[in-house]
Simulated assay, not measured.
Amino acid sequence: MPAVDSHAHAFDLQRQGWGSDRGFDIQPNEMGTADQFLHMLACHGFTHGVLINPLGGYGADNTYMLEAIAASAGRLKGVALLPDGTAEAELRRMKEGGIVGIRFNLDFPTSPPLLGEAGQRALARAREMGWVIQVHYHHGDSLVAALPVLRAAGLPVIIDHSGRPDLEQGLEQPGFRALLELGRSTDATIKLSGLFRMTRSGSPYADTDPFVAALIEAFTLDRCIWGSDWPFLRARERTDFAPLLAALARTVPEAADRERVLWTNPARLFGFTA
């Protein structure tokens, strides 16, 4: 079956140097090119992937991502950062080049903002382009503050990395409860990714299972997608693709349900065809 890894990053210093506006540095062990990513996907039976501009490394410059998508024969698409004031011609180039959405990092000061007038301009341009908006944050309070804007955006909303709950605070922590309510009351999508960022016990990430189960219940399997987060930037410990995929099989045990998460849903959101 076709399958999409809906969250990965790619870097190639021979193609593009680091950006002066980068949010953080990429370490040598975190490097991975688009060709290496495609090979890794093929090794695990995946057919497609979504590259995400993480703000680290290249900053808001999406050049290498666009090059990688163009060379992928339809196997890759991208979610970019959109600086305020981006020219209309560049927007068209991004859309034609396989960019399907823009990302907001709520807790990075150097990220293009979601809130305020600049955020409203970015959302208007996303509507014009027919893009999704993807939201990443480290603290649940950041989501709570952004909820009015997300609910009013009139765009498909994707929440990254399972909402990054603090497992020690349990299922009732306010930010996670707000995320679950977003899932129940809107058509937002949750990305079942980032388990290695949440876990306290490490692989096989069993301590994240109750949180993933709550997300699946709130968003339903029709609004869940999965991503590896390869090549695992800023991971606290060694992380690999297969254990993360095994954790998905544990929490979504039926093959037909995993097909929805790995193909049907991301193909609809990002415009992939088999």
Score class of each variant (00 low, 15 high):
Glu254Ala: 15
Trp226Cys: 04
Gly130Asp: 01
Arg103Val: 06
Leu81Tyr: 08
Leu38Met: 14
His9Thr: 09
Phe108Asn: 14
Val132Arg: 08
Gly19Thr: 12
Leu123Thr: 08
Ile225Pro: 02
Trp230Gly: 06
Leu51Asn: 06
Pro243Ala: 05
Ile216Cys: 14
Leu262Tyr: 11
Phe196Leu: 10
Lys95Trp: 04
Ala124Lys: 11
Arg92Trp: 05
Gln169Arg: 15
Phe270Met: 07
Lys191Gln: 13
Ala10Asp: 03
Ala146Ile: 05
Pro210Leu: 09
Ala146Phe: 00
Cys43Gly: 11
Met40Arg: 14
Ala10Asn: 03
Asp141His: 08
Asp209Thr: 13
Phe211Ile: 09
Thr110Asp: 12
Phe232Asn: 06
His39Trp: 08
Arg22His: 14
Phe176Asn: 04
Phe46Thr: 02
Ala267Ser: 15
Gly19Arg: 11
His7Pro: 09
Ile26Cys: 10
Leu248Asp: 10
Pro28Asn: 07
Arg151Cys: 11
Pro28Thr: 07
Glu88Cys: 01
His7Glu: 01
Ala213Phe: 04
Ala87Ser: 14
Arg92Ala: 12
Tyr58Val: 00
Ala249Trp: 04
Leu114Glu: 02
Asp25Ala: 15
Thr199Cys: 13
His44Trp: 02
Ala246Pro: 00
Ala213Cys: 10
Leu114Arg: 05
Ala246Ile: 01
Ile158Asn: 04
Thr189Ser: 07
Pro2Lys: 05
Pro174Glu: 14
Phe272Asn: 02
Phe46Met: 14
Met129Gln: 15
Glu30Trp: 11
Phe37Lys: 13
Thr63Gln: 06
